[in-house]
């Protein structure tokens, strides 16, 4: 599957999904590389969910340099918010994250969603969004 516009399609659909289903959550798109593509927050609880989207051909595994950047992104996101707040980074990727890199991301508590399509990614992220809206 070749998805050159996966990032744009997913972020647009995610925004619409949150606006229609979870109005209590705030949605913002990052304009700086030091932040994930999207930050979703429950302003009542202070929990923030960063979503970084990595599109591309699903036959190509995620390169190690991207893994390194994700780790840096997670650290930058944690630095940016007060330590009292719960911060999570989720990565939505069309390419596979191979075992050595998946283990490193898991150790950094970065969650990875491997998706075939925009609908698939939204479906997999929805349970976390529901929990976030409920205050978890």
């Amino acid at each position: 599957m070749n998805t050159p516009n996966f990032e744009v399609q997913f972020i647009t659909r995610l925004r619409d999904h949150i606006v229609s289903k979870y109005p209590e959550l705030s949605f913002s798109v990052s304009r700086t590389p030091q932040q994930p593509d999207v930050v979703i927050e429950n302003t009542r609880t202070g929990t923030a969910l960063g979503v970084e989207v990595k599109g591309g051909n699903s036959a190509n595994p995620v390169p190690p340099a991207t893994i390194a950047v994700l780790i840096e992104l997670s650290a930058a996101m944690k630095d940016r918010y007060p330590h009292s707040r719960r911060i999570e980074l989720w990565v939505v990727s069309t390419g596979k994250v191979l075992p050595p890199w998946a283990d490193i991301l898991a150790n950094e508590q970065i969650r990875v969603i491997n998706a075939d399509s925009v609908d698939d990614a939204l479906g997999k992220l929805d349970s976390r969004l529901r929990a976030l809206a409920a205050g978890d």
Binding site: P64, A65, I67, A68, I71, E72, P100, W101, D103, I104, N107
Partner: peptide
């Protein structure tokens, strides 16, 4: 490479 300044586990795995 850019991995020189990356966290140790990543360089080790690489």
């Amino acid at each position: 490479t850019i991995f020189a300044t990356m966290p140790t586990p990543l360089a080790t795995a690489l």
